[in-house]
Nucleic acid binder design. Sequence first.
DNA 1: GCCAACGTTGGC
DNA 2: GCCAACGTTGGC
Length: 153
Amino acid sequence: MAKRYWLMKSEPSVYSIENLRSDGTTCWDSIRNYQARNNMRAMSVGDEVLFYHSQAIPPGVAGIARVVREAYPDHTQFDREHEYFDPGSDEDDPRWWMVDVEFVRAFDEVLPLNEVKEDSALADMVLVRNSRLSVQPVKAEEFRRILHLGGQP
DNA sequence: GCCAACGTTGGC
DNA sequence: GCCAACGTTGGC
């Protein structure tokens, strides 16, 4: 399977690219949206991820991560104490899944969403067309274009 | 804080 | 299966 590309959103006040830098690797838990979950289940080890800061000033692409573990059940759905506990999920047939990603690098500066929106080559990005989806596919040429706009080699 | 866009729930 | 009501996301 050829390498694929994705974009994953995180609120930096909760978990930023700098948190990922210091952790090295993290599990992408607490996703409770079927489309986002399906996208995570389609990921392969080695796929590259644009790490996006939402609810930030400015919102935008903050860096790059890489998938290091394919989808496995999200433990938080079974944790009664957890905010995203899901009483409807069966341990033998879990509803929610997550992947592990590792830090690759941070952009020197966040590439702001408005610059993405202004770039005609990126007009069809899911990010531009459906601003709500938190885990989304990115085309190879879109990924390359984002890196270019973000000042990456 | 507002609100548009989207997703989910539940009555019928 | 439709659709109104409600909830959430996320830019601004």
